[in-house]
């Protein structure tokens, strides 16, 4: 129905077309094993991360070159974040958090290339990421603290009369975590790319094309920032949830 409206004005906006999952070879149905553009871009993501973190540090130089210092910068940033936010005992989970951070950052950034496919703009992908965090954090919480973990929902610092209400709110907010965690990332990516696409659609009209190209440039710059910040936010929230699981006392 949206397509019809757009066709009537002569402009063609297909802001959502870039998110289509298509098979790489031929155009059959998408089975669970079919190599699709998702596969391609995830592979490129992995290749880029390996190039940065493994190839870049191949020299093991005391005085690092540029690539190695970027790799060390990323390592240091995530390491410090885990240590500061979640505590020293969370460093055991550092490799997984680093995996999350690198995957999301590189997916977001690679998704900004023209003609590319943003894997993190799909709720299926971010949902799995967020659910993995949610489930593992809950399991860690119960394994480490037993039933004491439920103290997270029972706010002892509040007056007794308020505690049941607060407990309800805490439980709801706990279960909303994976939802907001995943939708924040997917929504930001989707929205930014769709906005760029819409502005790019306006470029077909000669009168406003300079303006629209300017707008695309500006939004693109913003999106580079958002790509990084969303990866950072996803990671730091993971650390916060992990801290809640390791030290449930408020």
């Amino acid at each position: 129905m949206a397509t019809e409206a757009e066709e009537a004005t002569g402009l063609s906006f297909h802001p959502m077309e870039q998110f289509l999952v298509k098979p790489l070879f031929g155009d059959g149905p998408v089975h669970w094993y079919t190599p699709t553009n998702v596969t391609l871009w995830m592979f490129i993501t992995v290749a880029a991360i390996v190039a940065l973190l493994v190839m870049g540090t191949r020299g093991r130089a005391i005085v690092p070159n540029r690539v190695q210092s970027v790799a060390e910068l990323a390592y240091g940033m995530v390491h410090k974040m885990v240590e500061d936010v979640a505590g020293k005992d969370a460093l055991k989970y550092f490799p997984y958090i680093m995996t999350l951070f690198m995957f999301i950052t590189f997916s977001n950034m690679l998704g900004l290339l023209p003609k590319s496919f943003t894997t993190t703009s799909h709720i299926a992908v971010t949902g799995v990421l967020a659910l993995a965090v949610f489930i593992s954090v809950t399991v860690i919480g119960f394994v480490k603290n037993g039933t004491h973990f439920l103290g997270l929902f029972w706010v002892t610092s509040a007056p007794l009369a308020l505690r049941p209400i607060l407990a309800v709110i805490e439980v709801i907010s706990y279960f909303v975590r994976p939802v907001s965690h995943s939708i924040r990332l997917a929504g930001n990516m989707m929205a930014g790319h769709a906005v760029i696409k819409v502005f790019a659609g306006f470029a077909a009209i000669a009168a406003i094309s300079p303006l629209s190209i300017l707008a695309v440039t500006a939004v693109y710059g913003l999106e580079v920032l958002v790509s990084f910040i969303q990866a950072y936010v996803f990671t730091i929230l993971t650390c916060v949830y992990l801290k809640d699981a390791l030290h449930p006392a408020h």
């Binding site: 999952v21 998408v30 089975h31 669970w32 094993y33 079919t34 699709t36 998702v38 596969t39 995830m42 592979f43 993501t45 992995v46 995996t99 995957f103 894997t119 799909h122 299926a124 992908v125 799995v128 990421l129 993995a132």
Partner: peptide, 13 residues
């Protein structure tokens, strides 16, 4: 397309 994405995501991760 969900199973496809999830499958490749798990492999990637």
């Amino acid at each position: 397309t969900f199973p496809n994405q999830i499958f490749w995501l798990v492999i990637t991760l």
